[in-house]
Every structure is written in C-alpha cells, then in structure tokens.
Nucleic acid binder design. Sequence first.
DNA 1: GTGAAAGCGCTAACAA
DNA 2: TTGTTAGCGCTTTCAC
Lengths: 342, 342
Amino acid sequence: MAPPVTLKHIAEEVNKTAVTVSKALRNHPDISKKTREEILRVAERMGYTPNLIARKLSSKSTRSIGLIVPHIAHPFFAQSIEAIYDEAHRREYDIILMLTGEDDGLEAQHIQSLLSMQVDGFLISVSETTKDISIFQNILNRGKRLVFFDRVMEGLDCSRVVCDNYQGTCDLVTFAIKNGYQEIGYIAGYSNNYIGRERRHGFEAAMTNAGLKIHPEWIIEGGFSQKDGYQGFMKLKGNGPLPKLIATVSYNVAMGVMKAIEEAGLTIPNDIDLIAFGDSEFNHFLNPALTVSRLQSREMGRRALDMLIRAIDLDDSESTEIVVPTELIIHDTGLNKKIERR
Amino acid sequence: MAPPVTLKHIAEEVNKTAVTVSKALRNHPDISKKTREEILRVAERMGYTPNLIARKLSSKSTRSIGLIVPHIAHPFFAQSIEAIYDEAHRREYDIILMLTGEDDGLEAQHIQSLLSMQVDGFLISVSETTKDISIFQNILNRGKRLVFFDRVMEGLDCSRVVCDNYQGTCDLVTFAIKNGYQEIGYIAGYSNNYIGRERRHGFEAAMTNAGLKIHPEWIIEGGFSQKDGYQGFMKLKGNGPLPKLIATVSYNVAMGVMKAIEEAGLTIPNDIDLIAFGDSEFNHFLNPALTVSRLQSREMGRRALDMLIRAIDLDDSESTEIVVPTELIIHDTGLNKKIERR
DNA sequence: GTGAAAGCGCTAACAA
DNA sequence: TTGTTAGCGCTTTCAC
C-alpha cells in the first residue's frame, strides 16, 4: 500500500514548503489566491487526507468531547445521544461516545481514556452504581469542563441538565387525582439516588397537596428496570388490598408492572390503573396506551451539549443548572372511567 | 491550570530520561523492576496521564475503528452498536461512532473524518440514500479494512455480516401458510435495495413453494418506516378486497400498518392478521403481540467487529460474508385461529 | 538496563 | 506572500 500523502509531498510537487501548503489548505489569509488554488488542486489530485492526529498534537486543540452513558438501547439515551451528535456536528465538534453498562469501574476507565485523548470536555450520565466523586473531581481539577445530564452526581458542584423529576411526577399524579383517583400506589426507584428521590417527592407532594393519605404499604422501592417493576407489583400485591391506581418511577418499571398485572388476571385500567414517568415510542401502540410524563430527550441532549460548549468557549467554570420540563401526555389511563377495550 | 505532566517531568523527578520512563510505563522488558516501580509510583503521585494523541502519532497505531450508522434510536442499531462496543472494549480497540441520519453526503464526510483520524478500519451500515460506491472504494484503496453490516453496499466486493433476509421472510410467511393462510399480502420495502429485494424474494418463495397465488395488487412497495407502513395499508385497501394476512418488510412498517388497521376499525388477528420481519423489545406488550422473524442484533454486531479486527490483525483483504439466521418468534398472530382478546 | 538521536505530520511564531 | 526554526509528547532504533 502506498504510504499516505503528506504536506511535504504536496510541497515538493508545487515547489513550496510544507508550511505554505499547510496554510493554503486551511485557508490561511497569508496565502495568495493563486498559490492556494494550485495547492488545493494538487492536494486533491494526490488524494491528500490531513492527519488529524498530527494536527491535534501540534495545535493542542482537539475540538472533541467525551460522552459517557450507561446504555444506548434505551429510549431516553438513544434520543438524547442523537441530539447531542447532531448539535456537535453543527458546531464542528467530534463526539467520542463510551458506554459503561452501569459499571462504575468501566466508567472511571473511560474517563481516563478520554482524558488521555485530550477531549475538551465531558458530557456524562452516571451509572447506577457510581458512588465515588473523586473521578469527576479529577476532571474538574484538570481544568476540563463537565456537564452531567439526566443522571447527575450528587455532592459535586457541577453543571447539569435534568428533567423536572419532581414536577413531572407531581403533575402526572395530580392529573389522576383530579380525575377522581384517591387510592394511589407508587412503584418507586431507589431513594438513595437523586432521580428516585425527586420523583418520589413529586408523588408525595401530589398526594399531600390533594389532602390524600399516603399509604406506606403502597410505596414499593426498587430499581428502574422492567424486572424491578414486575417484582414491585408482586410485593405490592403481597402487602394486602391493592390501590386503584399505580404510578411508576419509570416507563420500564411500568412495563414490568403491566406484565405482572396481566399475569394476575387483572385488566388495566378497569381493575387497576397505571400511569408512568417516562415514555417510549411504542407507547401509543399499547392497549391501553399509558398516560405519561414524557421527557424531552432531544431537547435535554441539545442543551447539555450547548451548555458544555459554551463553558469551553468562554472558559467559564461556573456551575449552572437547566431543568427541562416534562410533558404530560394523556392516553387511555389515569382517567378513572371505565373504558371499552378496543 | 497547571500544565499537564509529561514523560519529561517524571524523568526529571527520577533522574532518568523520558525514554526510560516511557518504557517503564508500558512495561517494556528493558527496564529493571526497581526502576519501573519507582517510576510507576512517581507517575501516580504526579497524576500523570499519557497523551494518546502523541502516542498515536509516534507509534503510528491508533487501535481504533470507525463505526458509521444511520441512527441509534432504532432497535437493531441500538443493540448491535452496544455489542460492537462491548466486543471492542474486550479487544482493547476504541470505537468512534458517527451518525448519518440517512444522509449520504454526511456519510461521505464522516468517512473522510475517520480516515483523517487514522482509524484502522470501518464498520458501516449504509444510509438509505447512498448510491456512490467510490467513497467506499476509497477506503479499500488506502489499504484500510471495511466490513458492512446489515445495510450493505452492492456492487462492491467487500466483507459483510447480514441477517438472512431471504430465509427469515420465507420462514415467517411459511409459518402462516402452514397455519392455513392463503390470501397473503406483503408490504415491501424498496426493491431497488438489497434488503428490500431479499425479503421480497423470501415472501415470493414462501408463496410459490406452497403453490399459492401471488396477487400483485397485494404487494405494496414503499420504505421501511412506520409512515410507509401506514400508507402501504391505505394503498392496499384502495386496491380492492383485502388479503387475510399481511406480512411486512420491517417491524416499523408493521407498526404503521397496525395503526392504519385500527383506524379502519378492523381487529388483528380476527379481521385481518399481521406478521413482520424484525422485532422490538416492546413487542410482547402489544395486544396482540406479533409473530416475527427476529434479527440477532447483538450477534451480528459482535461478528462484524470480530471479522473486521481479524482482517486488520491478519492483514487480510479477502472478502468474506457471514449470514446470521433469524429466529422465528411466535406470538399471537399468524396463527389463523380466532383468539379471545385479552 | 539505559539513553542519545531521530522522527511521526503538523502548526505557531517569527523572519525574510 | 513565503519560508525558517522550533516543537507538540511520544516511540523507535540503535549505541553504549
């Protein structure tokens, strides 16, 4: 295989030096139009491809940002990541994506790799298992910018873009209450975790605001997955008489609950009703489709990237927070009226 | 911000040269255990982070591969990409992911960028709009390895990992036929495209093998999206009496068809039945859940990466093809018996 | 076992 | 407008 064409090769071809060629190819104003055009032509003809590795080393600028998330096969992440990529492309930044699979060790490893790759900043949605703050502190100490999105790290003064976990849940549950529901259960996430706690508070606020009694035996703690939802409903059922409506901490949990409800031979929404925080693209194909508080995934991704790049460009280390509201999407549940199955 | 620690700084600290430090940190056998341990300790203490950009330039090896796909918010891509990342991590390669959004211009741009980044190879699922082969030929001409997965480029002798579009569709339709269906329609993708054509042939083969008549007015060409499915059913309905069962070229198309069927006031599977090529994680929550030919997304991703790395390591430019079979997943449709709605 | 020399391909600063 | 010099941080080769 022919060795790649470099600036020097082009320089020889046009009887100029590598510096001149370098400038010409980058449209540096130094170079005369005539020379530039000749160089461009020759470079094209020779099939020149700039070596970004060398350019980055020399210029000490990478225009790249590290993106770390737990998964991509997940409605929120898939969409927010797409938005981040789109926006980064528009601003001529490269994204280097790494996946943790909810493994904090891997997360720390990826941060090291990305630091080694000299990224200008980090966009991180932390893994469920992450406890140690020092890795993130380390990023900040090196003068790199860091923005958390959705899954933030607590105890660290750092920029973040989150959805309105509290208000979103409160609105969702309030909607059901306004429709006449009073006996409401909640399948919660872990409350030692920011998102789980915020959403749970939103649930409790909705109940309290409406003067309704919160039944501790109707609040089940667990994780955020389908399996957790399934098990959550089982526990709930074991606790005695069921509530009339269940709200869940996440869409995945609602799916697990739905499965368990079906297996129990009950019907949604007539026997027991179900609403959820979150959403999925397939929701409106379900029967019944769930009333949900939907995250603005793309918007969150876009704004997180925007915030990061702004911090990089302005060399601004202030921490800011953006709370993106959720949207209440009303479908066939949480309505408290018997509906005819389609 | 303190300037980053380099090999030279460590070298000064331990009264050795940068070369020695470099070797020690990479566990080069040259270095004595004593020296290495001291260097490791000092590097740790000083918070040394290797500069990968410099290392890559100097060593002329990046151990990274470019991954180009149309989307990630898509069941197949999300899963296959996760598998690719996992496998790459295991083999200590970096993945640089770029998204085209089905835009062939962007695709070409990304290929250029990745070449500039000196990736060792490419893993590509081409965009729907891509026509021009020369960009891919260009990769090969530079001696880089390229493996297509799922969405392959025709007219190019190149390695690929695909699912069994033909057999998967044939098996799916044959299943319904064995259950007694005879009047079967097909909402196809574009037939000027590899995938669309293969699947359509699979449909036709199933019909022909069973000695059934293929009604041209029951085969509707279109794209692969939900919208295409919706419109496809509308067209089908406009063509006169409906078939008893519809098979679709993709799961998304089936979703569109499902919506259109519902809006037409018909019921699946009793009024008209529906089966699909593809799958989604939410399928079993649908009522009815569709009988489908499922792609082994993770397996396909894993094998594509494996094939690529093998080609890179062995410096092998032979083209090979892997066809990963699909799995017939039987749910509530394609059974040709009246079922009680849950 | 350690280090000196050279260079990866490019760019920044300055000189001509 | 163009070129010279120097160096980015690291690795490779080869001499000691």
